[in-house]
Nucleic acid binder design. Structure first.
Length: 720
RNA sequence: GCACUCUUAGCUCAGUUGGUUAGAGCGCUCCCUUCACACGGGAGAGGUCGUAGGUCCGAAUCCUACAGAGUGCACCA
């Protein structure tokens, strides 16, 4: 048989991939509504079982990184597998405005241009970031195509689309109606650079070595790393059971000399003061410390701001007012030393300080009025869903981590002081009652009847991006009435990075259950971080970032995909070495050459299962592999399926069966059978090269391999 | 402090419910351009599966302790 000319040269992914992707996209089969019907033995169309994955929408603020390539690969494997098995398969793509993340990226750009967001009108800033994001979005979509993503572009949604905003507002209102939303002045994580509060998850802890100061506070010794917060400390707290201080009673007043002169201190007994720590006595700064704030609340103590929003000392600091806390610390200590208030300094005290996860600056705890969601009731339902198996988490250890977090959940601050996001639909005005100033709030997109004239102004804050993202699965499917929602919800799999288990997965679970009454997804597959060849985290500053697009250009997308998948178990990190990807480039070429050989053989006319033409023992062996691989993919052991296929095709098919067949024309049908079906099994993993070969087959069941029928129906073993 | 994970060949990692001579990629040694493929083929070296106990007919796989590495959450006077 004539072998097509192209097979005489090594497989060339660069010359092949774009054209193949275009064929797929033009076919319309990414959209499940267009999938070809499958007929049963009687020629009647088979009812198609739905299968759906909602894609974690990539942030539209830059280029795709290796982590994106990994999720595209894993999800595309699951999706192509389902599609070939005749399911009505929807992979729903999106693009994320990524609120704070994108604003930070854009601010960096502004800084380079010598501009600042604090010097521009919010409307202008918003407009600029919108343009920036929409530009990136198109770019990012092209990159997803390059990675072979077989998602339904016709259903793509952007996280700021009208439908999203509307649903998010409905949810906000419902939370309020159900008593799960409150506005409260609490300690928040304040980033002095970004001028916004952050959730706990958006802070990281850094171990620092700092001087620890033992200060004389009247008859007591108190310890602190932050003398600059101590100006307002007028309460001295000790454990009620601490015998050393039994002569002091709650409410005792003491006159003592402090940083800027004499003050009156009041004794407070509270169990939060740990006798084992330092002297067992502490003073409190309720405005800038979580524990202190709680003590102040319990004892109904006043609190005062010491440090402003930019990290500078306020007038209460007297001569130090206006100084940054960093500069002030040494000067304050110097003054206290002169006054004999410093007992000793411990030079190498290590503590962990919270820092902004974006800029690394120390978080300044501040008291601020914010919107909070009460999470405990939502978490309870999520815990039930996990423990009952309504939602299955891969792996067991990730499930434990999730449950541990849910069981210890804290209320969620969902307001951010940034412009790039969905504005919070709330209005407020000052009111006076019983001689006391208060604030009245109204939830809704519009001010209450009476309107602006009555002094109502709109909340300028925006939602934490994750608040809207957490509603993504049901929003994208058109909750509550959309056809897709009815067909595809709950979705089959949520595949995403283990690093956003709490940020996103846990919250999707909670809000999905809360709003729809059902879990948003039945299975959760969590992948680990993609690291460099040495196991180091990729970062721009280290210069070890591997761009998936560059790799794809050099080795081919199929090779990249295999390199990302083989040996990569869920939940664990993956070290990505270019040499490994190179190995799979060779594999793609191997497959190419097998095809060349097989197509050069004399194939029986109408090769369809010519009675006895296919060697039974080889067919049985192949079919067993197909069943095994099918089972592995069903159980999400994608890494094993990929490796088994690699070894079968190379070590068994190429090295043995093909060799054995040489000079034996009667092997033709067998070789063809194995080739054709190997292409099918490999297609989810290496879609481009398999489709390219498929296109050259003389006789094929469907124009596109993408919608060919999966060779094994086997489904065995328990589902996890 | 609470929780989780890892320790298998020189390197990076697989090893599904415990079961015959422990696997892959890369690297290494030697050989081969023969008619699918040098992005190839053949041959080979290399591991007492962290340590010490235990359960079992049988353990890299289960249990305990210890050692080393790492991660998450919370607190931090």
């Amino acid at each position: 048989m004539e072998v097509p000319e192209k097979f005489t040269k090594p497989y060339n992914p660069q010359a092949t991939e774009d054209e193949i992707y275009k064929k797929w996209e033009d076919s319309g089969y990414f959209n499940p509504d267009n999938l070809p019907l499958r007929l049963d033995a009687q020629g009647k169309p088979v009812e198609m079982e739905p299968f759906c994955i909602v894609m974690p929408p990539p942030n539209a603020n830059g280029s795709l990184h290796a982590g994106h390539a990994l999720f595209v690969t894993l999800q595309d494997i699951m999706v192509r597998f389902a599609r070939m098995r005749g399911k009505k398969t929807l992979w729903l793509p999106g693009a994320d405005h990524a609120g704070f993340e994108t604003q930070v990226v854009y601010e960096r750009q502004l800084e380079k241009e010598g501009r600042s967001r604090f010097e521009m009108p919010p409307e202008q800033l918003y407009k600029e970031i919108l343009d920036f994001t929409l530009g990136n979005k198109i770019f990012m979509e092209g990159q997803l195509r390059q990675l072979g993503a077989s998602c339904d572009w016709s259903r793509e949604l952007f996280t700021l689309d009208e439908r999203v905003v509307k649903t998010v507002y409905d949810t906000f209102r419902k939370l309020n109606d159900d008593g799960l939303l409150y506005r409260g002045s609490r300690i928040v994580n304040w980033c002095p650079k970004h001028q916004t509060s952050l959730s706990n998850l958006e802070t990281e802890r850094e171990t620092r070595t700092s001087p620890f100061y033992y200060l004389k506070y009247g008859p007591f010794t108190i310890g602190t790393v932050r003398p600059e917060t101590k100006f307002g400390d007028k309460y001295v707290v000790m454990h009620p059971g601490d015998a050393r201080y039994s002569k002091y009673k709650e409410g005792d007043m003491l006159e003592l000399e402090w940083i800027n002169g004499p003050i009156t201190a009041t004794v407070i007994k509270d169990e939060a003061s740990d006798p084992a720590v330092g002297s067992g006595v502490m003073t409190i700064t309720p405005w800038h410390s979580g524990t202190d704030f709680e003590i102040a609340q319990r004892h109904n103590l006043p609190y005062e701001q010491i440090i402003d929003w930019r990290g500078k000392l306020l007038p209460i600091a007297g001569e130090f007012a206006g100084m940054s806390i960093k500069d002030a610390r040494a000067k304050i200590v110097e003054k206290m030393q002169q006054k004999g208030l410093v007992e000793k300094i411990d030079g190498d005290y290590t503590n962990e300080v919270p820092v902004c996860y974006k800029c690394g600056r120390e978080i300044e705890p501040q008291v601020k009025a914010q919107w909070f969601v009460k999470m405990q009731p939502l978490a309870r339902r999520a815990i039930e869903a996990v423990t009952s198996g309504e939602v299955k988490i891969l792996t067991d250890s990730q499930e434990k981590i999730l449950l541990h977090w849910l069981e210890n959940i804290q209320d969620w601050n969902i307001s951010r002081q940034i412009v790039w996001g969905i504005p919070i639909p709330a209005w407020h005005r000052s009111t006076y009652a019983h001689g006391k100033q208060d604030e009245e709030w109204h939830i809704g997109e519009n001010p209450p009847a009476g309107g602006l004239g009555d002094g109502w102004t709109r909340d300028t804050d925006t939602f934490d991006t994750w608040f809207s993202s957490s509603q993504w699965p049901f929003i994208t499917l058109g909750f509550p009435d959309g056809e897709d929602f009815k067909t595809y919800y709950p979705t089959d799999v949520m595949e995403t990075g283990a690093d956003i288990l709490f940020f996103w997965v846990a919250r999707m679970l909670m809000l999905g259950l809360y709003i729809t009454g059902e879990v948003p997804f039945k299975n959760v597959y969590l992948h680990g971080l993609v690291r460099d060849a040495k196991g180091q985290k990729m970062s721009k500053s280290k210069g070890n970032v591997i761009s998936p697009l560059t790799v794809s250009n050099e080795y081919g997308t199929d090779a990249l995909r295999m390199g990302l998948v083989v040996g990569n178990t869920p939940g664990t990190d993956l070290n990505l070495a270019p040499s490994k990807i190179g190995a799979y480039k060779k594999f793609a070429n191997k497959l190419w050459n097998i095809a060349r050989f097989v197509l050069s053989q004399d194939l029986p006319a109408g090769r369809q299962e010519t009675e006895g033409a296919i060697r039974q023992e080889l067919k049985d062996e192949f079919d067993a592999l197909a069943a095994d691989v099918t089972n592995d993919i069903e159980q999400y052991r994608i890494y094993m399926a990929a490796e088994k296929l690699y070894h079968y095709v190379w070590d068994r098919f190429a090295a043995e069966i093909v060799e054995e067949s040489k000079g034996k024309p009667e092997y033709g049908a067998t070789l063809y059978y194995i080739l054709e079906n190997s292409l099918k099994l490999l297609h989810p993993f290496m879609p481009f090269v398999t489709e390219a070969i498929w296109q050259e087959l003389p006789e094929k069941e469907s124009d596109l391999l993408m919608v060919a029928q999966w060779p094994a129906r086997h489904s065995g073993g328990p589902q996890k």
